[in-house]
């Protein structure tokens, strides 16, 4: 029970990071982006590449940090992966979504995002192989926090949770206290007024993709650190991330964070009752319950 809660909180942190970017894109560009979860895969794999690169150039970086399986090289790689993923997100927008948006074909954006997801996922599979990979082959043992009730926690998990919370706090500060954050909210609320108020739309849209891509990359690395890296990370996480977004209410960053934790925790708790085979269906159950009870999410504005 306690163990499920702890695991759920960790999964929740990862889902939250993914959901923040998705909720911002869905709010500003008004489409459900089914390729958002693939950004987690891009992040996880690019960190793998950077990690090999840094560890090769500067072997000293490949030393582990304290009790973690994390190395300095991987931390550095994570930042590089965040940049690379943010850039990928902007490029995908330029090449696909922006061109469809410019045609005024709003409905087709969702459709296109399916195609984009399919391409990214399988190109990654083609490049990196279909087998699962790990950042580190060293086994890190979990620390027994308590024996009754049993609670095992890996140092990595504590690190991931703290890092995720830190990232969310930084983002929250940017959105609520800086004019950059106001600009993002302004564009989401009224793009044409934002433009005549001196905001360059294309910049703000690029910024949203960069933020979304960076957070997704961090989530991907964290996921890879706790599980393993394979081309279907996106496929497995797309529904939990959507569930978190809908639970939180489209456009609410705070809602996405809370939604992520709700989805992560309830998915783990549900497995106490349900056979484990049903776990992929749990996020949809959550969506279903929410649509019945509070269709606009916990913090969403009324949508039409």
């Amino acid at each position: 029970m306690i163990q499920s809660l702890a695991d759920g909180i960790l999964v929740g942190a990862i889902v939250s990071l993914g959901a923040i970017g998705l909720t911002m894109v869905m709010h500003m560009l008004r489409f459900a982006n089914f390729s958002h979860a693939e950004l987690l895969s891009i992040g996880a794999y690019s960190a793998l590449v950077f990690d090999a690169l840094f560890s090769g150039i500067l072997p000293i970086l490949a030393n582990k940090i304290g009790p973690l399986s994390m190395t300095w090289a991987l931390i550095l790689s994570m930042f590089c992966a965040m940049g690379a993923t943010g850039l990928s997100a902007v490029l995908i927008d330029r090449f696909v979504f922006k061109r469809i948006r410019d045609k005024g074909d709003e409905l087709s954006m969702v459709f296109a995002s399916f195609g984009v997801a399919l391409i990214i996922r399988n190109v990654l599979g083609l490049i990196f192989g279909l087998k699962s990979q790990l950042y580190s082959n060293d086994i890190v043992f979990a620390v027994m926090v308590s024996s009754d009730p049993l609670l095992l926690i890996k140092p990595d998990q504590v690190f991931v949770l703290l890092a995720a919370l830190l990232i969310m706090l930084v983002l929250q500060f940017v959105l609520s206290r800086t004019t950059l954050g106001y600009a993002l909210r302004a564009v989401a609320e009224n793009p044409s007024l934002a433009e005549v108020s001196g905001i360059r739309l294309s910049w703000v849209i690029a910024l949203v993709w960069i933020i979304g891509g960076m957070l997704a990359a961090a989530a991907g690395v964290f996921y890879g650190l706790n599980n393993h890296i394979n081309p279907v990370i996106g496929r497995d996480l797309v529904l939990p991330i959507f569930a978190a977004t809908i639970v939180g209410g489209i456009g609410s960053v705070f809602g996405a964070v809370l939604g992520g934790f709700i989805v992560g925790i309830s998915a783990n708790m549900a497995l106490l009752i349900l056979p484990s085979g049903y776990s992929p269906a749990v996020p949809f159950m959550i969506i279903l319950v929410l649509l019945l009870v509070r269709p606009n999410g916990l913090f969403g504005e009324t949508q039409t």
Binding site: T179, L180, Y182, A183, R185, A186, E189, N190, S192, L193, A194, V196, S197, G198, I199
Partner: peptide, 24 residues
């Protein structure tokens, strides 16, 4: 330019509306 309707950002505070146009 002051548009006819929807010419303020409802979800921002009054100060934030002004800070937004003055951000540069």
């Amino acid at each position: 330019y002051v548009p006819q309707s929807d010419n303020i950002f409802r979800s921002l505070t009054i100060r934030q509306n002004l800070e937004l146009v003055l951000r540069k």
